[in-house]
Design a protein around this nucleic acid. Structure first.
Lengths: 229, 229
DNA sequence: CGAGCGATTGAAAAGACTCAACCACCGTGG
DNA sequence: CCACGGTGGTTGAGTCTTTTCAATCGCTCG
């Protein structure tokens, strides 16, 4: 019983587009985008692209969520970023001229549109607003990753988990956080067992509640305090 | 007895420029750059810009080295990047429209040129090659940071140190690595004491040698093996 | 020559990880 | 309808890494 099924949304009516890189598009531009994109339904845990492959285009998330991750030596995933509706994924490697250094996989059923590399690059070339949006996005992400690195290096797992839960809540919006313990651990950067133990601690401290695998935030302030942020 | 003193190098003759973002510039473009830049001498440990301030322009390193770092909760530095001659520093925040999220400070005496914000942005607007170079640079850096995050999250301090020493050697080229133990620890992401103990281990394993604070790499292969990369 | 900072060492404690086992839920096939 | 198998979640115990704190050393700068 998939809640989401294959739908063909036009770019014009796409709510996700409003907040995306293409938010500034209007009239003719939207039509062009509409003609160039193809829309697909992705099952849960389906890869969009994988580390080492050459970029073929960009993915615009209409509905659903995607994890972006790298693999360490032992093959353990490290989730670098979680992308939700409205985000455009996979465009970074288009500019570096190198193969993907990360992989992207859906976390739930998703509707995702695809725009081919040359079409996308043409858009970027001809549209200064889009270009500036991309440069801004790249720069912001760079700053985010500086913070990410600092947190990894200096915070305890407990602090990182509190911080991560707050980030996750922002991504899941009204919904409850719904991630496998392993994915959550790979986001926080810890072992699954450690993550579970800390979730239990947080439950006991009434910072969160769990409903099966889903996690409900009870005390934002408290978590913020634990995160030391 | 400063080995480096204030010199005014013209962009045209600047060897560092060749490898920099401005490497593609020729004739008239170089002249324009020359007119817009101002060149200054920086003492050791002198800040170029600090976290929280608004970007005023970009810094092109002619001679010397610069650390880019963020500060964690307790004010502890985390070095995100080390920049050497030829690198242009501080342009990321120019596009994000936000204040700097990181600080930059010289690690040694340096000669560094400055280009004001509006001049730089004009250059970017009018020069597609520069623009593409920047987008490429931003994307590559983003990929590097994904690896950085993964290393932080999954590698032991010992592994990270081995890896870091190899990176440092690339930055210091022919010279020996010359960093305070604290800076080195802040790059690796560990406590100074731990760093010192591990350096001692590496010495005993004849992977490195030390000459006062300077570190000499004796066995690249060995370090690579320790780094597990 | 003394002050002070950076480098180094020691000892103890804390935080996290690993490994192993167990549980709980879910869909399948009989 | 229920037993079965499998995956993901949870718990316990022990170990190892890393940090912390305190103290010492050594050198450079005034």
């Amino acid at each position: 019983m998939p809640e989401k099924s294959h739908k063909h949304v036009t770019c014009e009516n796409c709510l996700s587009r409003q907040n995306s890189l293409f938010g500034s598009f209007c009239g003719e531009e939207v039509d062009l985008l509409e003609r160039q994109k193809s829309c697909s339904y992705f099952k849960k845990n389906q890869p969009l692209f994988i580390e080492g492959s050459a970029p073929r285009g960009v993915y615009c998330i209409n509905e659903g969520k995607v994890k972006i991750f790298a693999r360490g030596e032992e093959g353990k995933e490290q989730i670098i970023h979680l992308a939700a509706a409205g985000e455009v994924v996979g465009f970074r490697a288009m500019f570096s001229g190198e193969p993907y250094k990360v992989s992207a996989t859906t976390l739930e059923e998703s509707n995702i549109c695809f725009i081919g590399k040359s079409d996308f690059l043409d858009l970027v070339d001809s549209n200064p607003t889009l270009r500036n949006g991309i440069m801004k996005e790249l720069s912001k992400e760079l700053a985010d990753r500086a913070t990410f690195i600092t947190n990894m290096a200096q915070k305890s797992v407990r602090e990182r988990l509190a911080f991560s839960l707050l980030m996750l809540q922002d991504i899941y919006k009204e919904e409850m956080i719904n991630l496998s313990r392993e994915d959550m651990a790979n986001f926080v950067g810890t072992a699954t067992e450690t993550l579970i133990r800390l979730l239990k601690d947080f439950k006991e401290e009434e910072l969160i509640a769990t409903h099966a695998r889903r996690v409900e935030i009870l005390d934002r302030e408290g978590l913020l305090r634990v995160a030391g942020n």
